[in-house]
Write a protein that binds this DNA or RNA. Structure first.
Length: 341
DNA sequence: AGCACA
């Protein structure tokens, strides 16, 4: 209601398939850039060079035949912030997600963000006739939002429609308080996975509030919390991770991370990997040449899911391709926790 | 294209 529908005249993808963040959002607000720079001084790659999409990025469906890229980017979703009660600190902690297909479901948006620490809620806006949609995802604070942003920006949401996500800080925070219950559908109460088509996927302004608030960021509100990405991944995906892990090491709870940008920091990796279940710690190797890192998980299931989720993800610091994940050759620091006398 | 730390 307070959102104007996306304007389909905006710039989109070039014929080469390169996504230009800057052009996708003409004349980005100054404050947004400043915020990004403040926290990540070396965000040059993100701001000035287009995120390139790795074939490993995002939830992979089966191998879809390539399609000519439709223009997916949008400008829109302007929020009338006149009546918005900004939190005491006006730090932006809401993400704006563009590039969603018109038939995107609130559940899909929810599944995209629910595992990130600090996730609070998401709101899908589908503009009836348009073939595209956009959404907002609210986080507890800006670092959480930025971590989720760096992990999801550039992800291929729908290979079939060639939908690539553009995730950015929203221009203003969404109202996260449940001050209004007008257009909240009765979905969140129950009947969850029952009816996959139960979402009001048409009709502008279906404001679905999928909350993940509360404790440790998992589950809640009816959705199974664990690694149920069954909506996105084929069965073989979870059965045979080696088919998707282009390396030879046997599965290991520790991951080896390569192809990091020269300015990648350990904190940036923590921001990204801490969203994975079973995450323990990151150890970065910056001394020699190209930085690499090791990320430890509590078990091989966790590390495998992390590979599947984050393979090829492009970070702020990334140059060119996204990071490459492999099982490490040996488990990180198994020393005292192991009960070898 | 690179696998350390204990």
């Amino acid at each position: 209601m307070q959102f104007s529908p996306p304007t389909p005249n905006s710039v989109g993808r070039t014929s080469g398939g390169i996504l230009q963040t800057a052009s996708a959002f003409p004349s980005p607000p100054r404050h947004r850039l400043l915020l990004l720079r403040r926290r990540r001084p070396r965000a040059r790659a993100l701001l000035s060079s287009p995120p390139r999409i790795s074939p490993y990025a995002s939830y992979r469906h089966h191998a879809y035949p390539p399609h000519p890229p439709p223009p997916p980017a949008y400008v829109g979703a302007y929020y009338d912030h006149a009546a918005e009660p900004l939190p005491p600190r006006d730090e932006l902690r809401t993400l704006f997600i563009a590039g969603l297909p018109g038939d995107a479901k609130a559940r899909e948006v929810y599944n995209l963000f629910r595992d990130f620490p600090g996730y609070v809620s998401s709101h899908l806006r589908t503009s009836g006739k348009s073939s595209q949609a956009y959404a907002f995802a609210v986080f507890a604070d800006q670092p959480s939002a930025l971590a989720a942003m760096s992990a999801t920006n550039g992800r291929i949401f729908d290979l079939e429609n060639n939908c690539t996500l553009h995730v950015d800080l929203a221009k203003s925070n969404s109202r996260s308080k449940r001050s209004r219950t007008d257009d909240v559908p009765s979905y969140s109460s129950e009947k969850k996975a029952r009816n996959p088509r139960g979402f009001p996927d048409s009709g502008a302004g279906s404001n679905i509030h999928m909350s993940g608030m509360g404790n440790s960021s998992h589950s809640l509100n009816g959705y199974p919390s664990a690694q149920s990405y069954t909506n996105f991944e084929p069965a073989a995906f979870s059965k045979d991770p080696s088919a998707f892990a282009p390396q030879n090491n046997p599965p290991c709870p520790t991951l080896f991370v390569a192809n990091l940008g020269p300015t990648c920091s350990e904190q940036e990796l923590i921001d990204v990997f801490s969203s994975c279940a079973g995450f323990i710690k990151v150890k970065m190797q910056n001394k020699f040449g190209a930085p690499v890192a090791f990320v430890d998980f509590k078990d091989m299931d966790s590390s495998t899911e992390a590979i599947n989720r984050l393979q090829g993800v492009i970070l702020y610091s990334s140059t060119g391709e996204g990071m490459r994940l492999e099982y490490a050759k040996s488990r990180m620091g198994l020393r005292k926790q192991d009960k070898r006398q």
